[in-house]
């Protein structure tokens, strides 16, 4: 079963003094996380996203659309990246999701991926 682990974090944590060092540290932890997934033999994919300020949203309303600068929803915590992992069940997915580094405040959303077969 595939699960998408969506990482929502407060981007501002990486701005200002110490921000760069924090980012380097967090990336290091992501590397370690990916490595432990690989060691456990778990199929994984994932990507880091550019900050929400680079997002463009196409908003549809019954056939009409408009472009907006910015993410779909403006919140303190923005989608900053994701993993897709293949594990047995939700408990296993949650156990892995808890190991994703989140400096400061944030949230990981765990969602089962629709099986098209």
């Amino acid at each position: 079963m595939q699960y998408m682990l969506m990482i929502h974090e407060d981007e501002s944590a990486y701005a200002g003094a110490g921000g760069e060092a924090l980012m380097a540290e967090t990336i290091g932890k992501h590397m370690a996380f990916a490595e432990s997934l690989a060691k456990a033999g778990i199929a994984m994919s994932g990507n880091r996203l550019h900050p929400a300020g680079t997002a463009t949203t196409i908003r549809w309303n019954h056939g009409e659309h408009a472009l907006h600068d910015g993410p779909f929803a403006e919140t303190v915590e923005e989608l900053g990246g994701y993993y897709i992992i293949n594990v047995a069940d939700l408990d296993t997915a949650i156990a892995w999701a808890k190991q994703i580094p989140i400096p400061g405040k944030g949230a990981i959303e765990v969602r089962p991926v629709w099986d098209m077969e």
Binding site: L90, D91, P112
Partner: peptide, 10 residues
């Protein structure tokens, strides 16, 4: 069912 909450004892 959909998120596959396991029936195994943790």
């Amino acid at each position: 069912a959909k998120a596959k909450i396991p029936f195994e004892l943790p």
